[in-house]
Design a protein around this nucleic acid. Structure first.
Length: 815
RNA sequence: GCCGCGGUGGCGGAAUUGGUAUACGCGCACGACUCAAAAUCGUGUCUCGCAAGGGAUGAGGGUUCGACCCCCUCCCGCGGCACCA
């Protein structure tokens, strides 16, 4: 027997599979489909490190297993090549982004091909291909048509390093997610997508998804639903009122002042009324200059100014209350105005204390109160005593029974929210934290937004037949920093005619963000070459939705929200059949460097998969990465440990020497292995699947022989994990077609049970011995055997009071 | 602060979801083969103890014949949200 030469074997089969187009996918009515998708990579200049393929290995194993189990599997790959990373790389290396991307893709592809993935490369897509982004632009126009894409001049987050506007999702705290620079607020014209129209559905449908709880939770937090009421406080001697938003209308009787956000529109209208306008104006000015960072730093410190001469009226009791402007109220949320209830809200309490304002409690806590103090409340539930209590302990933000609330006294706070709102003519309202998606970037390397600006007609959609609007060649593609994209300087491209009136028009020069192309790419794989329609309806119906989606958890509140939003929109305009794109999602845990840090060129700790493939082989790499630990968990790479999987494959290689005809001794373990490997793959528990394969191999070696049929079954179980070595061994058995087209072995449930069992004997909760017995031994027999055994029965001192027998598992005696 | 996930040998991690804790692998130690080394194979490897036994799944309590698993109170790590009314 020649020794295991991984390099030769792997090259041989990769070439052959490719030539035979083994993994080509077509729609087939006779088979159930399974769509297995990886989050496609940005082809960055650094190339793949050893962590990138982890997810791809998992989906490859999953796909191969599904194929062998009779499914028609769609398993494609492509490139998310627009956006800042690609552009920044190009700028740094002084090459055109298009050239850089082409080069990087070639490099990525070469690296991937060495690992033996079963992608259908005929469906390869690239978001920067005009034939691809034609449809990205098309979707944008459909949204524009429906009023979901609109122009806005609101101040947005601006990264002073990347020189572009950003969406909320592009921030980490208040830093640019790309470069870590603290963002500024900048008022520039921009395109915005109305994702907030979908907030409720995006939230509701989370429940239907087979996704990790942590990602679902992140999305719920990101959408941030809260239910409350909008209530108007009239302003004395004035015909306008202040519309406030509160989640606690039940505390309306406790409202002792009103606060407006500095940017509130009422400020201008009340200008003449406000006696101390210069002070107020100064405060507003200062607030606008404060960065978000300053605001957060001084979270505890509440600042604000009283609007002298302005008095609001609490609609529930006609009480006159003062009005403040303070930056602890945010203009972007709710109505930008609140009623302040210092007795029952931390922030209002802090502000009231600072400014010495009235604090009036109207809700009595339910339990959990210092008994002495609670007595104070119960004996005399008056404003005074409650206020004393609150001053002593701080605000009570829970629910309870109302006091000092007129007709609502003694009712539970939860029960009166709607009643009180109704009484004052307010309205129950639901608010979301989610903001509309700032969709324009002032950068070169992105999809041009297909809009033409006309002085007469306003923004006009580029007619569908004129798509794609191709990104023009440009001499300088560096960002300008002016709020205009580099495209603005190409007059010949910018100046065009208005499609509506044929007058002079100017093209929109902003481009789309990084996330545009990836928001629908899962659909492009279904019909990757279609240039006449978005996607063939029959094909879409056949493949949709994605059955298994695998990628990093860092996309929880970015790509995964955007893609759900676009998909729902496409569902609404009847382009797709399902309202959710990704039925099941697994997230892949990072592979960290040996030093526990992220792998990065910067730290010089990158392990290149090419080296591992060359030295240990792709099959070893695959088995190792799956064996390292639970799939979703991060683990540190450890080149020392990779020897384990390598030795395992070498031992598998030697197995061919001990294949015999007729030997039944491995039946039970074989069927257990078939069962466990299959269910583990389905559950993404690859580490225990590999471990079970190792256990089986250990048993075979102990047995010193394996019969042909068991060997065949074992090879098939290993095939998804180590496709090359198995294919070689399969061929050596005399087979002429690929093992990867073979059916997955089935297990026989009756053979899972071994003839004998060993039953631990517990006496008063401690294991005192083992009873080796035939399967299905009765309780009486076990007890008899215990009595016979001196080493066990010596522990029985006194009467047996209770016997718990779990058949074939355990017996427990209580003395 | 709120929410979610987690904490098991020297290391990565198993444990059929309440039934022999530490599978599988790495590392380490010893042995075989060898002139020698590598490779390979074998044995051992949670801890205290000569042993009989005892103790241990972040800490402490509880439920149970029996708890890594369920309940309560804490501690630590990771992730999301956070002046969102």
């Amino acid at each position: 027997m020649e020794s295991y030469n991984h390099e030769q074997i792997e090259k041989k089969w990769q070439k052959k599979w490719d030539e035979e187009k083994l993994y080509l996918t077509q729609e087939r009515a006779d088979k159930k489909k399974c769509y297995v998708l990886d989050m496609f990579p940005y082809p960055s200049g650094e190339g793949l490190h050893v962590g990138h393929p982890k997810g791809y290995i998992a989906t490859d194993i999953y796909s191969r297993h599904k194929r062998m189990s009779g499914f028609n599997v769609l398993h494609p790959m492509g490139w998310d090549a627009f956006g800042l990373p690609a552009e920044n790389f190009a700028l740094k290396n002084k090459v055109h982004p298009r050239v850089a991307v082409e080069k990087n893709i070639a490099r990525f592809k070469e690296q991937l091909s060495g690992i033996g993935f079963s992608y259908d490369w005929e469906r390869e897509i690239n978001t920067t291909d005009p034939e691809y982004y034609k449809w990205t632009q098309w979707i944008f126009l459909k949204m524009f048509e429906q009023g979901l894409a609109y122009e806005s001049h609101e101040p947005i987050n601006w990264c002073p390093t990347c020189l572009t506007g950003l969406a909320n999702e592009d921030l980490e705290g208040n830093e640019c997610e790309r470069c870590g620079t603290v963002v500024e607020k900048k008022p520039i014209r921009q395109w915005v997508l109305k994702i907030t129209d979908y907030a409720e559905r995006l939230l509701e449908d989370i429940e239907s998804l087979d996704w990790p709880e942590s990602i679902k939770e992140s999305q719920r937090n990101w959408i941030g639903k809260s239910e409350g009421a909008e209530i108007t406080f009239n302003i004395k001697h004035h015909d306008v009122g202040v519309r406030i938003f509160t989640t606690r209308p039940d505390t309306l009787y406790g409202a002792t002042y009103i606060v407006l956000a500095p940017e509130h529109e009422l400020m201008d209208k009340l200008k003449v009324e406000i006696k101390n306008w210069s002070a107020v104006e100064k405060y507003i000015q200062e607030a606008s200059e404060k960065s978000d960072l300053d605001r957060q730093k001084n979270e505890k410190e509440k600042t604000g100014v009283l609007l002298e001469g302005v008095v609001a009226i609490n609609p529930v009791n006609n009480e006159e209350v003062p009005v403040f402007v303070a930056d602890y109220v945010l203009s972007g949320y709710g109505t930008g105005a609140i009623m302040a209830v210092p007795a029952h809200d931390e922030r209002d309490f802090a502000f009231a204390k600072e400014k010495n304002l009235i604090i009036r409690g109207v809700v009595v806590p339910e339990g959990n109160v210092n008994p002495e103090d609670y007595e104070l409340l119960l004996v005399s539930p008056t404003s005074k005593s409650v206020t004393e209590y609150i001053l002593k302990y701080g605000p009570y933000t829970g629910t309870g029974y109302l006091i000092d609330s007129g007709e609502f006294n003694n009712q539970k706070s939860e029960d009166v929210k709607e009643k009180i709102t109704k009484k004052v003519g307010g309205e129950m309202k639901t608010k979301y934290r989610l903001r509309d998606w700032v969709f324009s970037r002032q950068r070169y390397w992105g999809e041009p937004i297909p809009i033409i600006h006309c002085e007469k007609c306003g923004p006009v959609a580029v007619p569908e037949e004129d798509l794609p609007v191709v990104l023009p060649e440009v001499e300088h593609y560096e960002p300008t920093g002016t709020g205009e994209s580099p495209l603005a300087s190409i007059d010949s491209w910018v100046n065009t005619t208005c499609p509506t009136c044929n007058g002079a028009g100017k093209r929109e020069t902003n481009t789309m963000p990084q996330w545009a192309g990836s928001s629908w790419y899962h659909l492009r794989y279904i019909d990757p070459k279609n240039s006449v329609e978005f996607a063939d309806k029959e094909k879409e119906k056949y493949w949709s939705p994605v059955d298994m989606y695998v990628g990093g958890a860092e996309h929880a509140t970015r790509h995964l929200i955007y893609a759900r939003f676009w998909h729902k929109f496409l569902f609404d305009i009847k382009e797709v059949n399902y309202s959710e794109p990704f039925k099941r999602l697994q997230h892949v845990g990072l592979i960290l460097a040996e030093d526990g840090r992220k792998m990065s060129k910067r730290y010089g700790n990158v392990v290149n998969p090419d080296d591992i493939v060359h030295f240990y082989g792709a099959d070893t790499l695959r088995v190792y990465e799956m064996f390292m630990g639970p799939f979703a968990q991060s683990v540190s790479w450890n080149t020392e440990s990779i020897i384990g999987p390598r030795k395992f494959l070498e031992r598998v290689w030697r197995l061919q020497e001990i294949v015999v005809e007729g030997d039944d001794s491995l039946e039970t373990i074989l069927h257990k292995t078939i069962q466990k490997v299959g269910s583990d793959i389905e559950n993404f528990a690859f580490n225990t699947a590999v471990s079970q394969l190792m256990i089986f191999l250990n048993e075979v070696e102990k047995n010193k022989k394996i019969r042909t049929s068991s060997y065949v079954a074992f090879l098939k179980l290993l095939a998804p994990f180590a496709p090359h070595i198995v294919e070689e061994l399969w061929e050596k058995m005399g087979n002429t077609s690929s093992v990867h087209l073979e059916p997955w072995p089935e297990y026989d449930a009756s053979k899972l049970i071994s003839d004998t069992v060993s039953i631990p004997v517990q006496i008063n909760g401690k294991v005192r011995g083992l009873i080796e017995a035939d399967f299905d031994i009765t309780e009486e027999e076990v007890l008899a055997r215990i009595k016979k055994s001196a080493t066990i029965s010596r522990w029985i001192v006194g009467d047996i009071q209770k016997v718990i027998y779990v058949p074939n598992k355990l017996i427990s005696l209580v003395i």
